[in-house]
Design a protein around this nucleic acid. Sequence first.
DNA 1: ACCTCACTTGTCATGTGATTTCATATCAGA
DNA 2: TCTGATATGAAATCACATGACAAGTGAGGT
Lengths: 165, 165
Amino acid sequence: MATENAALVGFAQHDHAACIKRALAGAEARCATEGFRLTPARRKVLELLVQSHRALGAYAILDRLRDTGFGSQPPVAYRALNFLVKHGFAHKIERLNAFVACAHPGISHAPAFMICRICNAVAEAQSAPAEGGLGATARAAGFRIEKTVVEAEGLCPACLEQARG
Amino acid sequence: MATENAALVGFAQHDHAACIKRALAGAEARCATEGFRLTPARRKVLELLVQSHRALGAYAILDRLRDTGFGSQPPVAYRALNFLVKHGFAHKIERLNAFVACAHPGISHAPAFMICRICNAVAEAQSAPAEGGLGATARAAGFRIEKTVVEAEGLCPACLEQARG
DNA sequence: ACCTCACTTGTCATGTGATTTCATATCAGA
DNA sequence: TCTGATATGAAATCACATGACAAGTGAGGT
């Protein structure tokens, strides 16, 4: 049953098994068409991220890689993560020094994140700070924005409920 | 002459000596009225941050502290930095794992930062992501935002000019 | 003046995150 | 098949951050 594999994404339940499959298939397809090499290590790291559906530190990923027979030195994880981030399959959460699978792969991207400070669940949303007040400030200052990090910290619905308990 | 001490703040020149004095006096005043203890170590760290007027890593601060006769273990720096951040005298730049003095102390705060990827200069602006699209998304998702991190990376005016050269 | 409680400091030890370096292996295209 | 670009493995090292504990300092009550 789908509910057995249900997990948290964007703070809502969903069919997780299908979602993992879809994400990996999508990544494979895009790598094929764009000429990227989704090697076993990279694929495995993406799978780990999608599977856990939360922010994972590089060393947590490394542990899981080791258990699966891959190399166990930090660069193994970091190289795969860098590849995934570079091509938009994953994002780094600066606040947590951790990584999440991208929730909207393929779509143009100025991601914003909501991070629960209790359970560390992460939901991805869209943002466009460079088009708002910050963009105007930057233009006025002569600063050219190339990339933005937007991360909101707070309480996810579940932990909020818990806290009210 | 003021220009001798001129330095970068918000990508613009200014009278740095006066600015340092003002920042420290302001912090002292606020600590006095609110009952915080601006101890020598804390004051020194704030001074270092204001003086350098850029993002400093905790260990860079620690080095300077050591040279000035303070303790030389990491917690010395981190404790002072935590105090300063907690009370709004400084901010952490998540992207750089570094700290800057607050440019608008006392004023209510949802800071946004512009970070030059070449020279690491940092300018502080105001933001209100929780009141824009992200706020709406969060409300819809049932997420309660408590704090936001907004950091734009790009090129400051000087480095942009350099790059065009 | 003295006590006491809360807070601050100093230091050691350790945990966590990330990169440099160099040798080796694999793949795609000439 | 050669070659250049890219990917991997492994060792070492660097950078960032916290836990734990003992000792010192300050403000308020008695």
